[in-house]
Computed example of a mutant assay.
Amino acid sequence: MPESVLITGGAGFIGSALARRLATEGHRVTVLDSLVRQVHGEDPTTTSPLLRSLDGYAQVNVGSVTSSTDLSNALADTSVIVHLAAETGTGQSMYEIDRYVQTNVGGTAKLLDLLVNAPHSVRRIIVASSRSVYGEGAYRTSDGKTVFPPYRDAADVAAGDFDVHMPGETALELIPTPETAPLQPSSIYGITKQAQESLIMTTAASIGVEAVSLRFQNVFGPGQSLKNPYTGILAIFSTLIRQGKPIDIFEDGHESRDFVFIDDAVEATARACTMPGVGGSVMNIGSGVSTSVLDVVDALFQAFGTTVPVVVSGRFRTGDIRHNLADTTRARELLGFEARTPFVDGIRRFVEWVQTEPTELDDYDRSLAEMSARNLLK
């Protein structure tokens, strides 16, 4: 049955791909997006391929989730909301705290306030949560216990001890983090994503709206922002490779992430929009595979067919975690979802797309300087 879907942040990386997918399946799609310069450029109508990709697929409302008027206008006749709108970037969140909280938490509160206090036709809301809500995630001790370590001590990391430790335990082994893990975010961004999720799951249940939380891991692929220096090492490293500049790898390069290709992330989200019986669920959306930063660089070099100098600097950012690896059992059981795109295939497709795009002005050094000036990059 066709739905009327509102995607907040729908001109972004995941949102625009989801909008095209849902429209192709016969759903009516409305997008609400503020078209921030950091992602879409100075003049989005000419500088944002993501915005142009929505032509013929979605009605685009330019506006902010921090405006009740903009939200109300976009909500007309909506049956399903996919709430993607958020400021993203762990490092930047640590010094633009007010902006992140106002958009991510305040915008979510305004959306829910409308659903509670005004007539609407919404039956389900999907919120884009994040791997960042877990902090360091799950590990196994030498005697087989599952533990959830606290955030790494800054003094240890500064001394070159990048591993995760648990008081009273020796060596820890990384294991997939399940949705039942305690939530202990280590960045302002992670805190705001936890707040978004909690606000929506609690409020929706009280007003008879089904809610689904998708805790996305590191989503990548064609279409991700090459302008935003605060998110996505793939985009950052690709720009450096194209410019022939050296890559500075933080920590020791063995830190790792669970990368999930954009087509797989969209598949999971589309299923969450329409699959019966998933209301009230929280699910990890990832590949279930952990890939180190050094392996990321090697994969990019292979895909580009060239190399640049690599420096493993030992520097680190406040708020960064060591590893993340998702337990994807619940998404498989509830959505029938399993990531289909191996990392190396996704990288190849990503690089093929990158090479068709203009090389963006490099704001990466400026972003590092901003963090260094606030003692957040050490």
Rank of each mutant, 00 (worst) to 15 (best):
S132R: 05
T47R: 03
K227W: 08
I126R: 05
M94L: 11
T203F: 02
E255M: 09
P222Q: 08
S132W: 05
F259N: 07
Y100Q: 10
G221Q: 03
S186V: 13
F148S: 12
E267Q: 11
D363M: 06
E25M: 08
F250Q: 14
S48G: 06
G190Q: 06
V354I: 12
L112D: 02
A204N: 07
A205R: 15
V312P: 00
P358Y: 06
I285F: 05
H40N: 05
V266C: 01
S129A: 12
L111P: 11
V266G: 00
S34G: 05
H40F: 04
T341Q: 02
D263C: 00
D143M: 10
R152Q: 10
S287D: 01
D363K: 09
L377S: 13
V278L: 02
R330E: 15
R315M: 10
V296R: 12
A155Y: 09
I241Y: 09
L183M: 12
R317G: 08
T231E: 14
I175K: 02
V31Q: 00
P119F: 02
S372Q: 15
R131V: 12
L294C: 10
V101M: 05
V39L: 14
V62Q: 06
I347C: 09
T47L: 11
L18K: 03
A373S: 12
V122E: 07
R330L: 15
I207A: 06
E352N: 14
L71Y: 02
T177R: 10
S53E: 04
A303Y: 04
D264S: 00
G89C: 08
L368A: 14
D327N: 15
S206Q: 15
L174S: 07
Q194R: 15
G9M: 00
T307E: 13
L376R: 11
D77Y: 06
D113Y: 04
T146D: 13
Q355C: 13
L240F: 11
V80E: 04
V5L: 03
D252M: 08
I200K: 03
D298N: 11
R124T: 08
G26S: 05
S16D: 02
Q224V: 12
F237T: 09
G26Q: 03
I81Q: 00
L300N: 09
E338Q: 15
A299G: 09
T274Q: 01
T78C: 02
V344T: 13
R315E: 13
D70A: 12
V164G: 09
N218Q: 09
T291H: 09
G190K: 11
Q355P: 02
Y139R: 01
F162A: 12
I97M: 11
P246I: 08
V29M: 07
M166Y: 11
Q302R: 15
S129D: 04
A76F: 08
F304K: 01
L325K: 08
L376M: 04
A331L: 05
F216N: 11
G56L: 10
G288L: 04
G208D: 06
V344C: 06
Y230H: 13
A85T: 04
T341V: 14
V133A: 03
E357R: 15
D252L: 10
T46R: 13
I175F: 06
L18Q: 00
V219M: 03
E136A: 09
D113R: 02
R123N: 13
A181H: 02
R317P: 01
G277K: 04
Q196C: 14
P2Y: 07
E42S: 15
